[in-house]
Structure formats: structure tokens, C-alpha cells
Nucleic acid binder design. Structure first.
Lengths: 214, 214, 214, 214
DNA sequence: TATGAATGAGAGTTCATTCAT
DNA sequence: GATGAATGAACTCTCATTCAT
């Protein structure tokens, strides 16, 4: 019997409940800190069941993490599609804003991503991070390539470097909204969506002057 | 008897050895993951002694962390003093370069900082991070204020936002050199100091156009 | 519904497969160590089925063990029949040689026998072992009685004691070929069939002088 | 801190109690079957203590086993010394008798030996068995060499083969007294010491004729 | 008849913390 | 002041067995 086979035979409602609790637990306590005991206590099921479904803690984490990341990718895909006709900097603003909204609705997922990023001994850490970063860079690269084709960029700008800057700024901005006290009192953490838009506008402005065509 | 009282009565060599081992352990395994068992094994001292010196695990961590961060601050102070007469962007390049050099020499300290940043259940996490970030922002703010006084900045730029951008880019760049696979194959992780300088130059260049006076 | 009833309604092929896997598992890991989980995994059938067929783990073991021992007895019977006209010591040599050959072809069965012999908590351990030993002794006793009738034995030898010696030597010799390092470097374990015959000849020789008629 | 260091700092009485309980548990249930939970329950100490003393289950077993075997070797040494002036077959009888007496007083140790012999997954099984068997063979070889020097043996007898026979018979005889129902009703198991001497005498008699000088 | 999801006791192991010496 | 033995809760993981479908 393959792992996950058993799990996928459960009712969708139960699958969803288990996944949600697992994501929350890993999100709150990281991989090593997460307790399967705590999960089954919250779920009201037997400890053995988790191991029947996922084989071991590693398998559970991988499943929870991948499930969560799929939702991020889905979301990002729709953003890109909706900004296809906009210029680069409008698209960037939209992306950041979308990121803020997503995090507002799914803070748990963002924290899980953070944990995977900076905790050691995450199962398949390298593969996971490499694949995520690749996805993110490809996203910004594709925005930049579209912009270059339209003549929106400085001629001499290196697309890799530019993508790095975009990724760094967006990532840090979003992290600041999640991780308390990372913004040194600037007020990013927990600020209103309107204030967030102000921040986004000004950051984008700096970037436009840095890499834009004029 | 105050905690740390007994610790400071030890010979400087012993104090230094204990501090070093504690910093290494927390740096490698994070707060929750660190094992006092492991530390005393490496140190060859009794487990009870640690509790006598520092009260509990929390006290040990706080001491180790603060000690490590003092070294960072000392280092940063000398960088600022040495670049007092340079223009903003030269000073920024120097700062990033200095950061690369520091990390090269003290990777353990940088990892400890990362762990403190992204792990929950760090004792006094809020206070620690707030104080660190404050220090970092003040550093960049002071550079920017110096630059504004000299007319090196766009008139309309908001210094807080600019400091945010500088801090974000510098931080992400340095993290990329430490955490594997965070750079999506761009080659920042583990690149040679010369390649790092190239990266720094180009990032600074983007920033100059974004916030510089012309 | 009697247990085993449902099992015997299965296709002979399936019965045989289940028996074989069970014997292998018990042979490798002993009774307590054997895992029904592992068996059904290898068989690709439902765990519940095993309990339907055999009631519980005990029933499964008993069936597997008895099935395996039947094969040993069948084999031993043919050996005795084929040596009916030989003198005692030729028959003994033939028996030992046959034992070696059987083990060579059915190591799994021999290991199962060993496990049953020396593990506690074997279900019905006493009955099982008593019956096996009885069978073995009867075998040697019948050889000895035949020999006595032909005047091949010392007058004053006690047949029980002699049977004990024969059984002990044969058993130990065969075990030495299976269990590594039981022969203290004498080279019995894993030796070639030819070398085994040399050993057999010399052991038989000692026995002949010990109990033979002259 | 080395494993066993801590343990040896305990009071001799406590060390002895722990060792005794461990030997009993392994002796009754084998390695895999033994439960550290059960041991600490019987001892009335905390589970963690066992791991502090011995590191892990493997370490505990190794210690318990070696301690038990030392007692066997000590005993055997005194037997050999006391029979130095006897002829081979008298010495053999004394050895077997001594074995019977030892087992009568220490059945737990003998069962532990049996378990180590026939259970798989014993830690360092190969090394343990090789060393034990070597010790046993050397013992019989030394008796045989002494006998050959005195002209008590058949000229053409191979000492290795003879030692094998002695070891096999002695071992099986002693096992028969411990493991129930291994004697097929011959009455070795649990027989009185006097009956045991009778058996010993007759077995020795067979061996004498098989390998003796006349 | 066959299935396989559910169970929960029990396994070995690690750990921060306490306290008598 | 330094020690290190003692603790017990919490951890991940395995297993035979049950029973509704």
C-alpha cells in the first residue's frame, strides 16, 4: 500500500481538516518543533492514523508543505494572467498588493514558507527551496522580459540582477508584514491595506528609477 | 546571588570557551533544537554548572546572543567611522563588502542571527529583534541623513522608505551567501569575494539611480 | 465457521503464496518479531484477510510451522526407506548428508525450526517441540534397533543414550552450517558439500568406535 | 562523559541490582523482546537513568551479557585448575558436572546465552558468539592436548574434530536441562543431579571409546 | 468474503531541570 | 562553587487487532 493512498481514500472533509491542522502546526512550531501528538489531540484521531496515512513525520510535512505551496502558485498564476496587459511597474504593484492580500488571508501559509526557508533539518530542504526560488525568479524574469520587449527597461540593466532586486524587496516587504518587529517601527507589520499600498507605491517608484528606461 | 555573577568569576579563558560553544550550538540548531547536554559534553564540564551560571536555557541563550551581537555592532561602528568622508554610494559599497567579509570570518554569528530572526519561541524574541532592527535602521538612516545634507539624494525621497530598501537589499544579499539555494542559481551563495564585489556594484548602481540626486 | 475453513477455500496458488510468505517472515524474524503488516504488504492483500483465515497471529504461526515441518518429515521418511538395507553407520552418514542437502535447499525452513526451538512465547511451544523431538528420536531409535538386531552395536550400550548422542551431534553439525560463527573457525559454516562429507565421515567414525560392536 | 562511567559511580548494591534485573529481563525475553519499561518498573527508577548509564538498549545488553559471561568464564577457569592432575575423561566428567551445577545455580545466565545464540539482531552478535565459541573450543582443545601428551588419545584422532564432538555433546546436554521438552522424554530436563551424573558417565563412556587410546 | 481505516498501548530515546553531595 | 545522578514528560514510530462497509 503506497503512502498517501490511504489518506486519499478519506472523505474530502477529513482530508482537509487533517491538512489544515498539519499546516498550522508546522507553521507555528517549525518542522522539528511540531508535535504529532499535538496534532492528533486537536484532530481527535488516533496517533497511529497519521502514520498510516503518511508513513512518518517527514511524509506528513512534505505533503502539508506541498499542498500549501500549490495554493500560492495557483494564486500567483492568476495575478500574472490578470496583469498581462499592464506595464512592468503597474504589474509589480499588483503583485505586491496581491501578495499582501494573500498573506492577509493565509498568514499560516506564509509562516510555513518562512520556517522552511530558515530552519535546518527540513526534509528535502534543498530541493524544496531550490524549486520555490526557481519559481519565484522565473516569475519576475518573465515580467522583466515582457518589459524589455516593450522598451520599458534601461538598456544596460542585467535581468538577473534586476530580478534579484525585485525578489528581495518584495520578499522582505511581505516578511515584514508577517514577522513582528522586523520593520524597526516603520509600521509595516500589521499596517492597513491602504498604508501597505502607499509603501508599495514608493518602493516601486524607487525601483522604476533604478531600472526603468528613463 | 545574581545569575551571571558566578559566571563572571570564572577565568576569562573558561568564560570565552563556554560562550563560544554556546554560540555555536545555538547557531547550528536554533534555540529549541540546541541541547545543553551536547554543550556540556563538548565542554567537558558538569551540566549543573550551566544552570548555576545562567539560571536556565533562556538565560544562556540571551547571554550568548547578546555577546555575539556586540561583536557585530563593534564591527559596524568601525566601518561607519572609516567611511565618514565618502559619498553615500561608496559608503554603501563599503558596508556591503564589510558585511561579506564579516560573514566570511564569522559564519557562526550570522547563522545565529538568522535563527533568532525566523524561529519562534526565542526568549524575548520581540525585544531582541526590535533592538537589532533599530540598530540597523539607525545605521542606514545616519548614512542617508549625511547624504541628504550633502545634496546626494533626490529631494522627494522619504528617508524611511529608502532605509528600508537599503536594509532589505543588503540583508537579502548577505543571507543569500549563507543559506544554500536561496539564490536560484544566480551564484551568490558561496561566490568568490571578487564576484561578490561585482554584485554589490550593480545593486548599488540600481539603488543610486533609484534614490540618487540625478 | 471454523478457522482455516475459509483459507482452504482459496485457490491453491494463493494458499501456497500466503504460506510461503508467512514461513519466510517467521523464519527471518521469529514469532514476536514477525509483522503481519509486513506480510500483507508483501502479499498485496488486506490485513483483515489474515485474521479471517487464521483467527490471530498464533493461528497463522501454527499453520505455517506445521506446514513447514511436514516437508521435513516427508524428506526424512524417504531417507530412511532408501537406507533400509545399509548398515548403521552408512545410514547415519546418509542421514547427515541428506540433512545438509535439505538445508542447502530449504534454509528458510531450518531457520524457522531454530527460531521455534530457542524463542520463548512461541504458541504451544512445548507441544511443538515435544512432537518434533519425539519424531527425531524415534528416527534414530529405529536405526539403532535395526542395528542391534543385526549385531552392529556394543552389547552394553543403552539405546536411549546412544540416540541422544546421535541426535546431538547431527543437530549441532547442521546448526553449525546455518548459524555463522558457531564453529569457532573450524570451517563448518558454509563449507562445500565435499568438506561436509569429510566432517561427517570423521564424526561417524568416532561414533562407530564409541557404540559399535568392536 | 563516557557511557558506563556514570553507572560505575553508583553504589555497588545499586549496580548489582540493575545488572541482575537487566540480565533477567534479557534472559526471559531475548534482546528485541526485552522491555526497558519493564526493567525500570521493577527497579523503581526513572527510565531516563538507564539511558544515562548505558547510552541505549544496545549498550545495556552488551554490559549485561558481558557481565554474565565473565561469571561463566571465572567458573570454568576454576574447574580446569582443579582437574589439572586428572585424566581426560575424569576431567570431562568434572566439567559436565560443574556445568550442571552452575546451571542449577544460574539458570538465568544459561538462558541468556541461549538467547544470544539463536536470536537475530543481537548487537555485535558475530563478535559475541565468535569470542564465546573460541573460549569454549580453547578449553576443550587444552584438555585434549594435555591428554595427547599423556598418550590418552587415539594416535589418528584429529583434535579439532574431537573438540567439536565434546563441545557439541556437552552443550546439548546442558541445553536439554534448561530448555523444556528438548529431551524427548528421556528425562534429562530437570532430572536430579544423581541422574545427571549417570547420564554424564555414559556419554563420557561413549566418547572414551570413540577417541580414547584403546 | 474481502477490505482497509481506526485504534491505543507500548516501544526506545532525548531533554531541561533539580538537588544532595 | 562544582558536580552529576535522578527525574519524568514528551517525542516519533510500530503493532496486533477490530469492525463497518
Amino acid at each position: 500500500m503506497k503512502p498517501l493512498q490511504t489518506f486519499h481514500n478519506l472523505s474530502p472533509g477529513k482530508q482537509e481538516r487533517i491538512t489544515r491542522v498539519a499546516v498550522e502546526e508546522f507553521s507555528e512550531k517549525g518542522y522539528a518543533g511540531a508535535s504529532i501528538n499535538a496534532m492528533v489531540r486537536r484532530l481527535g484521531i488516533a496517533k497511529g492514523s497519521i502514520f498510516q496515512y503518511f508513513g512518518d513525520k517527514k511524509g506528513l510535512f512534505l505533503f502539508a508543505f506541498n499542498t500549501a505551496m500549490e495554493r500560492v502558485k495557483d494564486y500567483l498564476r492568476t495575478v500574472r494572467d490578470q496583469t498581462a496587459s499592464e506595464d512592468l511597474f503597474t504589474a509589480l504593484e499588483a503583485t505586491l498588493t496581491a501578495g499582501v492580500i494573500f498573506m492577509e488571508k493565509h498568514p499560516v501559509i506564509y509562516r510555513l514558507y518562512i520556517k522552511a526557508m530558515f530552519e535546518d533539518d527540513i526534509p528535502f530542504r534543498s530541493e524544496i527551496l531550490r524549486s520555490l526560488r526557481e519559481y519565484s525568479f522565473k516569475y519576475f524574469r518573465s515580467l522583466l522580459e515582457r518589459a524589455r520587449a516593450r522598451g520599458e527597461l534601461r538598456r544596460d540593466i542585467d535581468l538577473d540582477k534586476a530580478a534579484f532586486v525585485l525578489d528581495a524587496l518584495m520578499d522582505r516587504f511581505l516578511i515584514s508584514r508577517t514577522v513582528p518587529h522586523l520593520d524597526a517601527g516603520l509600521g509595516i507589520h500589521g499596517c492597513s491595506p491602504e498604508d501597505a499600498r502607499q509603501w508599495i507605491a514608493q518602493i516601486t517608484d524607487i525601483v522604476r528609477l533604478g531600472i526603468g528606461s528613463r
